[in-house]
Protein backbone atom coordinates (compact mmCIF):
# COMPACT_ATOMS: atom_id res chain seq x y z
CA UNK A 1 0.00 0.00 0.00
CA UNK A 2 1.22 3.47 -0.86
CA UNK A 3 2.65 5.74 1.81
CA UNK A 4 0.62 8.92 2.15
CA UNK A 5 2.02 11.88 0.24
CA UNK A 6 2.48 15.22 1.91
CA UNK A 7 0.56 18.13 0.50
CA UNK A 8 2.04 20.58 -1.96
CA UNK A 9 3.04 23.98 -0.68
CA UNK A 10 1.02 25.50 -3.54
CA UNK A 11 -2.57 24.51 -2.73
CA UNK A 12 -3.93 25.25 -6.21
CA UNK A 13 -1.46 22.69 -7.62
CA UNK A 14 -2.55 20.17 -4.99
CA UNK A 15 -6.19 20.84 -5.92
CA UNK A 16 -5.50 20.32 -9.62
CA UNK A 17 -3.92 16.91 -8.99
CA UNK A 18 -6.79 15.93 -6.70
CA UNK A 19 -9.30 16.97 -9.37
CA UNK A 20 -7.41 14.97 -11.99
CA UNK A 21 -7.60 11.87 -9.79
CA UNK A 22 -11.28 12.50 -9.14
CA UNK A 23 -11.93 12.74 -12.87
CA UNK A 24 -10.18 9.39 -13.42
CA UNK A 25 -12.31 7.78 -10.70
CA UNK A 26 -15.44 9.27 -12.21
CA UNK A 27 -14.56 8.10 -15.70
CA UNK A 28 -13.69 4.66 -14.31
CA UNK A 29 -17.15 4.44 -12.75
CA UNK A 30 -18.78 5.48 -16.03
CA UNK A 31 -16.90 2.82 -18.01
CA UNK A 32 -17.58 0.06 -15.46
CA UNK A 33 -21.27 0.91 -15.74
CA UNK A 34 -21.14 0.90 -19.56
CA UNK A 35 -19.58 -2.56 -19.65
CA UNK A 36 -22.10 -4.00 -17.19
CA UNK A 37 -25.04 -2.37 -18.99
CA UNK A 38 -23.80 -3.55 -22.41
CA UNK A 39 -23.35 -7.13 -21.22
CA UNK A 40 -26.79 -7.16 -19.57
CA UNK A 41 -28.36 -5.75 -22.73
CA UNK A 42 -26.71 -8.54 -24.72
CA UNK A 43 -27.78 -11.31 -22.37
CA UNK A 44 -31.36 -10.04 -22.16
CA UNK A 45 -31.29 -9.04 -25.82
CA UNK A 46 -32.58 -5.62 -24.80
CA UNK A 47 -32.16 -3.45 -27.90
CA UNK A 48 -33.30 -0.29 -26.14
CA UNK A 49 -30.70 -0.68 -23.37
CA UNK A 50 -28.06 -1.37 -26.02
CA UNK A 51 -28.94 1.89 -27.79
CA UNK A 52 -28.55 3.72 -24.48
CA UNK A 53 -25.04 2.28 -24.08
CA UNK A 54 -24.10 3.53 -27.56
CA UNK A 55 -25.33 7.02 -26.66
CA UNK A 56 -23.52 6.97 -23.32
CA UNK A 57 -20.19 6.41 -25.08
CA UNK A 58 -20.14 10.03 -26.24
CA UNK A 59 -20.01 11.16 -22.61
CA UNK A 60 -17.12 8.78 -21.95
CA UNK A 61 -15.24 10.23 -24.93
CA UNK A 62 -15.89 13.74 -23.63
CA UNK A 63 -14.52 12.73 -20.23
CA UNK A 64 -11.32 11.49 -21.82
CA UNK A 65 -10.86 14.82 -23.62
CA UNK A 66 -11.41 16.65 -20.34
CA UNK A 67 -8.80 14.56 -18.52
CA UNK A 68 -6.28 15.02 -21.33
CA UNK A 69 -6.79 18.79 -21.21
CA UNK A 70 -6.39 18.86 -17.43
CA UNK A 71 -3.18 16.82 -17.65
CA UNK A 72 -1.68 18.92 -20.45
CA UNK A 73 -2.51 22.09 -18.56
CA UNK A 74 -0.76 20.78 -15.42
CA UNK A 75 2.32 19.83 -17.45
CA UNK A 76 2.42 23.23 -19.13
CA UNK A 77 1.91 25.34 -16.02
CA UNK A 78 3.33 23.26 -13.16
CA UNK A 79 6.11 21.20 -14.75
CA UNK A 80 5.37 18.21 -12.51
CA UNK A 81 8.23 15.90 -11.57
CA UNK A 82 8.74 12.57 -9.81
CA UNK A 83 5.50 11.13 -8.40
CA UNK A 84 3.49 14.11 -9.68
CA UNK A 85 4.77 13.56 -13.20
CA UNK A 86 3.90 9.88 -12.98
CA UNK A 87 0.44 10.82 -11.74
CA UNK A 88 -0.17 13.10 -14.72
CA UNK A 89 1.34 10.77 -17.33
CA UNK A 90 -0.54 7.73 -16.05
CA UNK A 91 -3.77 9.76 -15.90
CA UNK A 92 -3.45 10.28 -19.67
CA UNK A 93 -2.71 6.56 -20.17
CA UNK A 94 -5.57 5.39 -17.96
CA UNK A 95 -8.04 7.81 -19.56
CA UNK A 96 -6.99 6.42 -22.93
CA UNK A 97 -7.52 2.81 -21.82
CA UNK A 98 -10.86 3.71 -20.28
CA UNK A 99 -11.98 5.39 -23.48
CA UNK A 100 -11.03 2.25 -25.44
CA UNK A 101 -12.89 0.13 -22.86
CA UNK A 102 -15.92 2.36 -23.43
CA UNK A 103 -15.58 1.65 -27.14
CA UNK A 104 -15.71 -2.07 -26.36
CA UNK A 105 -19.01 -1.51 -24.50
CA UNK A 106 -20.23 0.32 -27.57
CA UNK A 107 -19.13 -2.60 -29.77
CA UNK A 108 -21.06 -5.03 -27.56
CA UNK A 109 -24.12 -2.80 -27.86
CA UNK A 110 -23.75 -2.51 -31.63
CA UNK A 111 -23.64 -6.31 -32.00
CA UNK A 112 -26.56 -6.72 -29.61
CA UNK A 113 -28.76 -4.57 -31.84
CA UNK A 114 -27.94 -6.81 -34.80
CA UNK A 115 -28.77 -10.09 -33.04
CA UNK A 116 -32.39 -11.08 -33.61
CA UNK A 117 -32.78 -13.94 -31.16
CA UNK A 118 -30.72 -15.80 -28.60
CA UNK A 119 -30.95 -19.31 -29.96
CA UNK A 120 -27.90 -21.09 -28.50
CA UNK A 121 -27.69 -23.42 -25.53
CA UNK A 122 -28.15 -21.60 -22.16
CA UNK A 123 -24.76 -22.96 -21.08
CA UNK A 124 -23.11 -20.67 -23.62
CA UNK A 125 -24.79 -17.53 -22.26
CA UNK A 126 -23.76 -18.54 -18.78
CA UNK A 127 -20.22 -18.61 -20.10
CA UNK A 128 -20.56 -15.09 -21.52
CA UNK A 129 -22.04 -13.93 -18.22
CA UNK A 130 -19.13 -15.50 -16.38
CA UNK A 131 -16.58 -13.83 -18.65
CA UNK A 132 -18.35 -10.46 -18.24
CA UNK A 133 -18.22 -10.78 -14.46
CA UNK A 134 -14.55 -11.69 -14.66
CA UNK A 135 -13.51 -8.70 -16.81
CA UNK A 136 -15.73 -6.34 -14.77
CA UNK A 137 -13.95 -7.58 -11.65
CA UNK A 138 -10.56 -7.12 -13.32
CA UNK A 139 -11.46 -3.59 -14.39
CA UNK A 140 -12.67 -2.67 -10.92
CA UNK A 141 -9.59 -4.14 -9.25
CA UNK A 142 -7.29 -2.28 -11.68
CA UNK A 143 -9.07 1.03 -11.03
CA UNK A 144 -8.92 0.39 -7.26
CA UNK A 145 -5.20 -0.36 -7.50
CA UNK A 146 -4.73 2.90 -9.41
CA UNK A 147 -6.81 5.00 -7.01
CA UNK A 148 -5.11 3.58 -3.90
CA UNK A 149 -1.65 3.36 -5.58
CA UNK A 150 -1.47 -0.30 -4.56
CA UNK A 151 1.35 -2.03 -6.46
CA UNK A 152 0.62 -5.51 -5.03
CA UNK A 153 -2.99 -5.33 -6.15
CA UNK A 154 -1.85 -4.19 -9.61
CA UNK A 155 0.43 -7.23 -9.90
CA UNK A 156 -2.50 -9.40 -8.87
CA UNK A 157 -4.72 -7.99 -11.64
CA UNK A 158 -2.06 -8.69 -14.27
CA UNK A 159 -1.67 -12.26 -12.99
CA UNK A 160 -5.38 -12.90 -13.48
CA UNK A 161 -5.51 -11.82 -17.12
CA UNK A 162 -4.72 -15.41 -18.16
CA UNK A 163 -8.12 -16.45 -16.84
CA UNK A 164 -9.84 -13.98 -19.16
CA UNK A 165 -7.83 -15.29 -22.09
CA UNK A 166 -8.69 -18.88 -21.19
CA UNK A 167 -12.38 -17.99 -20.98
CA UNK A 168 -12.15 -16.36 -24.39
CA UNK A 169 -10.52 -19.42 -25.96
CA UNK A 170 -13.11 -21.73 -24.45
CA UNK A 171 -16.06 -19.62 -25.68
CA UNK A 172 -14.43 -19.37 -29.10
CA UNK A 173 -14.28 -23.17 -29.36
CA UNK A 174 -17.88 -23.46 -28.24
CA UNK A 175 -19.06 -20.99 -30.89
CA UNK A 176 -17.11 -22.91 -33.50
CA UNK A 177 -18.95 -26.09 -32.50
CA UNK A 178 -22.36 -24.40 -32.81
CA UNK A 179 -21.46 -23.14 -36.25
CA UNK A 180 -20.38 -26.60 -37.40
CA UNK A 181 -23.51 -28.16 -35.94
CA UNK A 182 -25.92 -25.92 -37.79
CA UNK A 183 -25.01 -23.31 -40.42
CA UNK A 184 -28.13 -21.31 -39.46
CA UNK A 185 -26.26 -20.42 -36.24
CA UNK A 186 -23.40 -18.80 -38.12
CA UNK A 187 -24.73 -15.25 -38.33
CA UNK A 188 -25.52 -15.10 -34.62
CA UNK A 189 -22.31 -16.87 -33.67
CA UNK A 190 -20.18 -14.39 -35.61
CA UNK A 191 -21.78 -11.50 -33.70
CA UNK A 192 -21.19 -13.30 -30.43
CA UNK A 193 -17.62 -14.07 -31.43
CA UNK A 194 -16.98 -10.34 -31.77
CA UNK A 195 -18.65 -9.77 -28.41
CA UNK A 196 -16.36 -12.20 -26.61
CA UNK A 197 -13.42 -10.64 -28.42
CA UNK A 198 -14.50 -7.23 -27.09
CA UNK A 199 -14.72 -8.62 -23.57
CA UNK A 200 -11.26 -10.08 -23.91
CA UNK A 201 -9.99 -6.64 -24.98
CA UNK A 202 -11.55 -5.11 -21.85
CA UNK A 203 -9.39 -7.54 -19.87
CA UNK A 204 -6.33 -6.24 -21.72
CA UNK A 205 -7.21 -2.62 -20.93
CA UNK A 206 -7.70 -3.58 -17.28
CA UNK A 207 -4.18 -5.03 -17.36
CA UNK A 208 -2.85 -1.79 -18.89
CA UNK A 209 -4.49 0.23 -16.13
CA UNK A 210 -2.98 -2.09 -13.51
CA UNK A 211 0.45 -1.62 -15.12
CA UNK A 212 -0.04 2.14 -14.97
CA UNK A 213 -0.95 1.80 -11.27
CA UNK A 214 2.26 -0.17 -10.67
CA UNK A 215 4.35 2.45 -12.45
CA UNK A 216 2.61 5.28 -10.59
CA UNK A 217 3.48 3.77 -7.24
CA UNK A 218 6.94 2.33 -7.89
CA UNK A 219 8.34 4.40 -10.76
CA UNK A 220 9.29 1.12 -12.46
CA UNK A 221 7.74 -0.76 -15.34
CA UNK A 222 6.01 -3.95 -14.24
CA UNK A 223 7.08 -5.83 -17.36
CA UNK A 224 10.77 -5.14 -16.71
CA UNK A 225 10.47 -6.03 -13.04
CA UNK A 226 8.75 -9.32 -13.91
CA UNK A 227 11.48 -10.22 -16.39
CA UNK A 228 14.15 -9.48 -13.78
CA UNK A 229 12.31 -11.58 -11.22
CA UNK A 230 12.15 -14.50 -13.62
CA UNK A 231 15.86 -14.24 -14.35
CA UNK A 232 16.76 -14.41 -10.67
Amino acid sequence: MATALNEHIVTSYEDELINLNKAISEMGGMVEQAITDAANALLKLDHKAAQDVRQYDKRIDGMKDRITEMAVSIIARRQPIAVDLRMVVTAIQVANDLERTGDMAKQLAKRTVQIESLALAPKFYNGVKHMTDLVARQLKAALDAYASRDAAKAVDVCAHDDEVDAMHTSLFRELLTYMMEDPRNISQCIHLLFCTKSLERVGDHATNIAEAAYYLETGRQLGQDETQRQQL
Binding site: N6, E7, H8, I9, A82, V83
Partner: peptide, 8 residues
Protein backbone atom coordinates in the same frame (compact mmCIF):
# COMPACT_ATOMS: atom_id res chain seq x y z
CA UNK B 1 10.68 13.77 -3.28
CA UNK B 2 9.04 16.33 -0.99
CA UNK B 3 11.61 18.94 -1.96
CA UNK B 4 11.65 18.47 -5.72
CA UNK B 5 7.88 18.17 -6.02
CA UNK B 6 7.29 21.20 -3.79
CA UNK B 7 5.64 19.39 -0.92
CA UNK B 8 5.59 20.33 2.73
Amino acid sequence: QDYITGRI
